[in-house]
Design a protein around this nucleic acid. Structure first.
Lengths: 165, 165
DNA sequence: CGCAACTGGATGATGCGTCAACCAATGGCT
DNA sequence: AGCCATTGGTTGACGCATCATCCAGTTGCG
């Protein structure tokens, strides 16, 4: 593929994004961690569970929520379990499956963390942007996510073909 | 701080950004890694060195370029050194300092990786966006980065005060 | 000069993320 | 029923990121 270099406009956008991404992520993570003892990853899991009916979710469903690799999820849930944030239970309808449930401590931890997280998101992102910028960010994300999803679909199609061959 | 929850518009922007960020970063990293054996982090270091006069940079300067914590930089440079991508030399004007220089292998590796990186950035971000969206992304980044810098300045000021007290 | 504070950088411990391999349960197909 | 491909999930190894600590060289100040 003959790849032309980025134009100044493109380079500015990419460069800005790259720097913002790194610093913003580390700032949000650091702050949440310092204030609540929960990492970004913890928070993602916990809030997915909190939103689920009965504060419990099948491993697979959880994986769809947070979009992690299965081994990452497994490792992390293991650690969270030893920290008492979550418990693992057997799955009734598929005995190789697992169901994870929020403990009371886990529920308290997320609830305590939520304000902090929202406040930080406001401070470092949302409150800084105009409505037009908010919408632009949403539409940019949509475009990128659609492209990434297409790739996923492509991968699945290739797997399909391999199966057929 | 009485933190009101995010409005639907704000939530959409934040949620989109969050998802895009995670998947985009992992896709870019994965692809670069698979195609060139270089991680995102490697590439950041190597391209900073490549751009520097003489392909060499003081540790401190490198840290400013990539905005990493010093221990991260030190560890990573150590590993890159054992991989033969980089060499560490003594620093003349400050003998506690260190200077890092790209090896030939390192130079070849970055140069080989550059096309791949640019192509991926096009595929998954830049080429998907309209000029208006590119500009919006740049201005959003500027706003966020300015806010983060302000915090940094604040931290420095606090340190200053502590020094004075 | 001499001492204290600071700075550039290295190091070790620890938790995290990814990959590859694995295992058991399942479901489809004949 | 019996087999085989698939799937949900775990495990171990390994490289990476962060924190706290440390060290040597440097700078500023009396």
């Amino acid at each position: 593929m003959g790849t032309l270099p980025l134009s100044p406009r493109e380079a500015r956008a990419w460069d800005g994004y790259r720097r913002m991404q790194g610093l913003l992520a580390s700032q949000l993570n650091r702050q949440l961690m310092a204030d609540t003892g929960l990492s970004d990853a913890d928070y993602a899991i916990l809030s997915a569970l909190l939103a689920a009916p009965g504060h419990r979710l099948r491993g697979l469903a959880l994986r769809c929520e947070v979009q992690w690799e299965k081994s990452r999820l497994s490792h992390h849930l293991g650690r969270m379990q030893t920290r008492g944030l979550v418990v693992r239970e057997e799955c009734v309808e598929d005995s190789r499956g697992a169901v994870f449930q929020l403990t009371d401590a886990g529920r308290e931890a997320v609830e305590a963390a939520t304000d902090d997280r929202v406040a930080a998101v406001r401070t470092y992102l949302v409150d800084l942007l105009t409505p037009a910028q908010l919408d632009a960010l949403a539409s940019i994300s949509d475009a990128v996510l659609a492209r990434l999803a297409k790739d996923d679909a492509h991968l699945r199609a290739v797997a399909e073909l391999a199966r057929g061959a």
